[in-house]
Amino acid sequence: MKQIIKYSLLILGAVIFAYPFLWMFAASLKPEIEIGGFSLWSSNFSFKNYEQVFARIPIARAFFNSVLVSSITTLSVVVFGSMIGYALARLNFRGRNALYYLILFTMMIPFQITLIPQYVLMVKLGITDSYLALIAPTMISTLGIVMFRQFFMSIPQALIDAARIDGCSDFKIIFAVIWPLSRPVVITVAILSFMASWNEVLWPIIVVRERTLMTLPQIVTLFTIGGQAEALLGLQLAAATLLALPIIIAYSFFQRYFIDSMVSSGVKG
C-alpha cells in the first residue's frame, strides 16, 4: 500500500513536470482552434505553425547566432578559466591571494549594479549590434575559474614537475597534461556556460536591436510580446518548441552531465 502511494506520487510528479512540454509540442502541431484541449493527439497535425514562424522571423539565422555566440563564449570560458585557475592553483606569484579574493568578491557583485554601466560601455566602444557585444561580457566566468582552481589543486605536483623537466610551457602543461585529467570539471564548466549563454535574454535584448544578429531566445521573446505573432498561440508555441528542442535533445544525451554540473554549481556558488 505504501509503495502504491509512493509510486503514484512519483508518477504524479513526472506528469506535472513532463506533460506541459509534451502538450506544448503537440499543440504546436495543432490548428489554432484545437489548442485549448488537454489531448496530445489531433488528426489535424501539421507543420503549418512552423512554416509561419519561419516565414515571419529569421529564426534559422537566430539559431545560427545562438550557436555561434554560445560556442565562442563556452570555448573562451573554458580556455581562459583553466589558464587562470591553473595560475591560481599551481603557480606562485606576487598578489596571488589578493587576486583570488578579488575573484571571490567579483562573484558576489549583483549584476543589477553593473548592468547599466556595462551597456554604456558597449555604447562607448561603439559595438552595440554586434556579436562582440553579445560575447565580451561573458568571456570569463568567475565561477568557472573557482571550479578549475579547486580541481587543479588536486592534481599531483609530480606530473607537472615531470612536464616541466621535459621543457613544456605552461600552456602545454594546461592543455596537454592537465586537461586530459580534468574532464569532469571541463565538461561541467562547459555545460554551465553554454546553458547560461544559450538561455540568456536580458543582455541580448539590451545590446542587439538588429534582427539578423538576434539570438534564438531573444527573437522568440520579441516575437511573442511584439505584434508579430498576432496573439496566435500556435505560432508562439511553435517558436517556443524550436527554442526548447536543441537543449532538450542535448539534455537527453548528456543528462548525467547536465544534472551534475547544475547541482555542483549551486553547491559551490
Binding site: L10, G13, A14, F17, A18, P20, F21, M24, A27, I35, M195, W198, N199, V201, P217, V220, T221, T224, L233, Q236, L237, A239, A240, T241, L243, A244, I247, I248, Y251, Q255, F258, I259, M262
Partner: peptide, 25 residues
Amino acid sequence: PVFRTIYFLPVVVSGVVVTILWQQL
C-alpha cells in the same frame, strides 16, 4: 534515474519557453 531525469527537465529549458507555456496554462 528516470524520475530524476524528468524532474530536472524544466531546469534546462529556457525561461522564455517556460513562460510562453505557462501563459497558456
